[in-house]
């Protein structure tokens, strides 16, 4: 059985500080990877490297056996990244945000109203996002998960600002994605209510001396 995503010997240095070195992992279909570690240890950096926003100092990543920079367009089509900045336009309403984002994600037949209902924003669709709460804005961002056709989801702190119901909703969506042979990589300070061998964990420790180990 081949791995969906395989990272080998990843090393990253940011602002002259070593974050992690020789980090390797691989995920099979239906697996979820929880990246743990203290603030500032480099969890977000790792996620951004996997997404292709950053380049590692050394190491390689393969998705379905294809190297990360081989065919960027195809690579980007297979992954969905939601960072801690939600990419929601404050001036636009939930409906407009969803609509534009879906088109940019290459999905044309999205039923925005149904999506709004799913994430519990029905009735708020015309209000500019800046007047919504942080949790509601996060829901707009996360609504992408319900139409996404990408197999690899990379989510940086997806539970931030969500209420209990929202968290449960997200868990259900994750479950569904994993059953469909998807793969999820996420960071979260909240413990995941997940059980079984589908959950993998890696921990990035803070390199407090800031020096490069060789």
């Amino acid at each position: 059985m081949s791995a969906v995503i395989e990272a080998k010997q990843l090393t990253s240095v940011r602002a002259e500080r070593l974050l992690f070195s020789e980090l390797s992992f691989q995920l099979q279909t239906g697996e979820i990877l929880h990246v743990e570690g203290p603030n500032g240890a480099g969890k977000s950096t790792l996620l951004r490297i996997i997404a292709g926003l950053l380049e590692p100092l050394a190491g390689s990543i393969h998705l379905f056996g294809q190297p990360q920079w081989g065919d960027p367009e195809c690579w980007r089509r297979q992954l969905l990244f939601i960072g801690h900045k939600p990419a929601v336009k404050a001036e636009l309403s939930a409906l407009e945000n969803l609509h534009f984002q879906a088109t940019l994600d290459g999905v044309t037949n999205v039923d925005a109203w149904a999506l709004l209902e799913t994430v519990g924003l029905l009735g708020l669709e015309d209000i500019p996002a800046q007047q919504l709460s942080a949790g509601q804005q996060r829901r707009i961002a996360l609504a992408r998960l319900w139409y996404s056709q990408a197999s690899l989801w990379i989510l940086d702190e997806p539970f931030t600002a969500l209420d209990t119901y929202g968290i449960q909703l997200l868990h259900e969506r994750f479950q569904h994605h994993l059953q469909q042979d998807g793969v999820i990589i996420l960071t979260s300070h909240q413990p995941l209510t997940w059980s079984g061998d589908r959950l993998k964990k890696i921990r990035i420790e803070f390199q407090d001396d800031g020096e490069l180990h060789e």
Binding site: E16, D209, E211, L212, H213, E214
Partner: peptide, 20 residues
């Protein structure tokens, strides 16, 4: 840029005081 590496320290004759 390479000051944290052993060869650069050796070049400058700096003792590696970080205990790495």
């Amino acid at each position: 840029q390479e000051l944290h590496r052993p060869w650069a320290m050796a070049q400058l004759g700096v003792e590696n005081d970080h205990g790495v």
